[in-house]
Every structure is written in C-alpha cells, then in structure tokens.
Design a protein around this nucleic acid. Sequence first.
RNA 1: GGUGGGGUUCCCGAGUGGUCAAAGGGAUCAGACUGUAAAUCUGACGGCUCAGCCUUCGGAGGUUCAAAUCCUCCCCCCACCA
Length: 428
Amino acid sequence: MSVLSILKERGFIDATTHSQELEAYLENNRATCYIGFDPTASSLHVGSLVCIMALAHMQRQGHRPIGLVGGGTGLIGDPSGKTELRKVLTQNQIDENKAGIRGQLSRFIDFSEDKALMLDNAAWLTNLEYISFLRDIGRHFSINKMIKAESVKSRLESEDGLTFIEFNYMLLQAYDFMELAKTHDCLLQMGGSDQWGNIVAGIDLVRRTLGKQAFGITFPLITTASGIKMGKTHKGAVWLDPQRFSPYEYYQFWVNTDDLDVTRFLALFTFLPMEEIELVKNLTGVDLNKAKAILAYEATKIAHGEDEALKSFKATASMFGSLEVPSELLPSASIPRGTLSCGTDASVPTSTFSKKDVVDKMFVVDLFCDAGLCKSKSDARRLIKQGGAYINGERLGSFEQVVTAADANDCEIMLRAGKKKYYKIILK
RNA sequence: GGUGGGGUUCCCGAGUGGUCAAAGGGAUCAGACUGUAAAUCUGACGGCUCAGCCUUCGGAGGUUCAAAUCCUCCCCCCACCA
C-alpha cells in the first residue's frame, strides 16, 4: 500500500497537487519531503501532531522526512490565520526552541543515519541580499496572484491589514522549498491546509528556477466534533513537552476526546491498523470509553514512551475506577487487558509540603492555591462555595477551615477540584 | 502629511459625569444529569484580611464632592484623501 493511500485512508489528506504524478513519484522514488515548524516555543503541541505523524508515516514507508525549523521565517511571521504580527525572537531563543523541537520530533521520527533530517532555514535565509533576492526570486512572483491567495486576501479584507514583512512570507517559504529541492532533492512539501498558497508558490518557484516538478500535500485543520480547533484545554495548549504538560495530563487530554472524534483520532494519532479502528465505529456509550483509553494509551506511548503510558493508565484507574479493556478491541494496541490487579496514583501531580506548616495551620483555600488547582484565593473560595472542592474525596463545606490532622492521614492529602482535577499533597 | 473614527475586564463588544467591577455574547470554571462524552439546565466568572475594602476601562497629568465617561499632552490602530 502506498504512503499516499495510507495517509488518505487515515484522514490526513486535505488536498494534493498533481495527484497522478505524485502517486507515481512516491511509488518509484525514495522521496524526501519536508514540513516547516515554527520555532516560536521550545515545545511543539498537539496542533502540530498531524504534521508530525505524517512525517512518521512517510519514514515508515521508506521515505526521508525533513523537519525544517523556521529560524529564518520565524523572524517574520506567517500571515495565514494570524491576526497579529509575530513577536521577534532572538537568535538565542530560536536556538533553544530548535533544540527542544528536535528532541520532541525524535520521539516520532528516527533521525539516525540520514533517515531523516533536521534543518534550519536561517542557514540560507539570513544571508540573503535584498537586491539579488528581488532580481532572482521576486521576479517570479506575480502580485496579482499573491493577493488572491486566501491567507493574503483575508488579511487585506480585515481591519488589521497586512504588513509588507508578512506579505513577503510566501516568498521566503517558496525560497525554502527551492533551496531544499536544490540541495536535498526534496520535491514534496506538506503542511496544514492554511499552507496551500505557500506550498503552491514554492512548487512554482522550483519549476521556474530548477525546472523540476515538485509536489504538495496539505492536511485538514483538525477540529473537534464541537467545532473548536483541537488541542485547547483549560491549561491552554496541549504541549508535547512533559515539563509543560505531564504525560498524565496528556493521557487525560486524550481520554476526554469527544465520542464523535474517537475513530478519526485513532486513525490520525496512533499507528494501529485501520481494519481494527474501523470496528470502533460500532461502539457506543461506556464501551467507547475503552476505545478512548486505548487512544490515550497509544498517543501517550508515542509521545512519552510506554512506561509513562502505563503509569498514566494505572493512575487513571485509581482515580476514576478501573476499566477492563477487552482483548478483542484494537488487539494491536499494547494496553493491558483484563482486570488490573492494583492501581497506583503515581502519575497524579504531586507536591510535598512540610507537615508542621500545614496541619492545624494552613487554610484549605491556601492549599488549593498552592497546589495550583486555583489561581487565586477568590477562585478557591468560589470553588468551595460552589461545592467543587474535595479533600480525600469529601466535599468541603466551608472555606474558613484549616487543614486538620484527620485530613492528613498517612501524610497524604488528595485534593480534587471539580470532577477531573486531582492533586496529591505529601506531608513531611 | 491631511481629515475622520477608534483603543473597555481572557476574546468579541455595549457603555458619554454618579444607580459601573462595568450590559450582552463567546471562552472558561463549578453544580445537576451522565459514561472522566456531547447536549441541556442552574450558578460563578478582577483581587483581598470578602455583608466591607482595594485595583482596573491605551499612557501621564488635570477639572469635579464624584470620571471608563469632560479637558490637556503623549503612544498605538483603522478608514478615506494626498
């Protein structure tokens, strides 16, 4: 089965250019393909996961992916879908972010022995000279065409307008593609559907300057069934960096997938075979939760490793009650089956406090704040007043109480805010 | 450069001297219902030593018993014209 069919079948493809030729090209070549990543943060988030998984599929089918970090373009900012000019990053920040991103990508992609590359477009963009750039590259671009690109058009029509620096983004991205085509024989660029205009511009430039046929694939913007862009939680973006977003939280994020998204997400965000995923479509109600557990387990395994996935699975069982995953459901998944002997809550966010500072001294309100479950005392008071605060499973009635010795049984206090947020306090 | 219109609490967006911590919507949070789902309903949604007090309406001053609302200067954005 060709990569293209695999990607198509799993829901990755929004559009491709030259579908016949592309199919043939991927069939007969060890292709090199690239996707650009913004170095605006030191971590990628699930918003980039579709791109990452696509690169991983490419590699699994014997092609060579390039992760291009936009150290150069990051200084400019892509106008697509953005309302604001990107803030300027220093080279230091970019270098740091680049290292972080590379580390994360290597969990999904094997960078050893030329199986994949990690490049930074700063290498060729920052030394460009304006006049020669205009003469050699700018000449190939028609303003008439550019202003018809959706990314530009929407901004021209918007209140905020579009600055010249952003208008140039397309040229730079096209230049990247040309550069990679020249130096790494990379003839396929992929990206989110908002990248269509930029990708097509690159393909044009490659043809005009190198006389080569290049290709493009775009991925759909992944929204949840309720229509929101996927990957937002109460904590903001869902990061792949375990420091910013723990594997347990990551697991929880996936467990909370909307019913209607489960099969789609299994196809996109796990490597489980499609024949097995198809069968999940028949599940409803509680049974579907088991498929969600598998989705969470597999996604966590891919991003953070099997150990973390297992820990999160067990912690979840101890918090929310254990869940028996039948052996015939998605058999390729490595999630534990049958009844689990005992759950441990080892992955629940935890911090340690000094016992003498807490017992008979600290107000419960402060404890909830210090644990990070509430962002201010007012917030904590509100939570308690509304009946959403629990200590060791018991709902708090008043926010004026102090933590007692009885709360601190075994030197552990389990805090809970609302239905899903747990936090463990260990007293020493 | 000229003229006109703007900058309001996370976002959109009302508000033109007191009744404004500021309408409405969205997002978010909690409760009920559930399946750690969705939808729905209810409530909350600046901070604090919380029936009170303090800090917010681009920034700095000023007028007034009283300002998001009036005046002055400054910063930023938009539209049209040049």
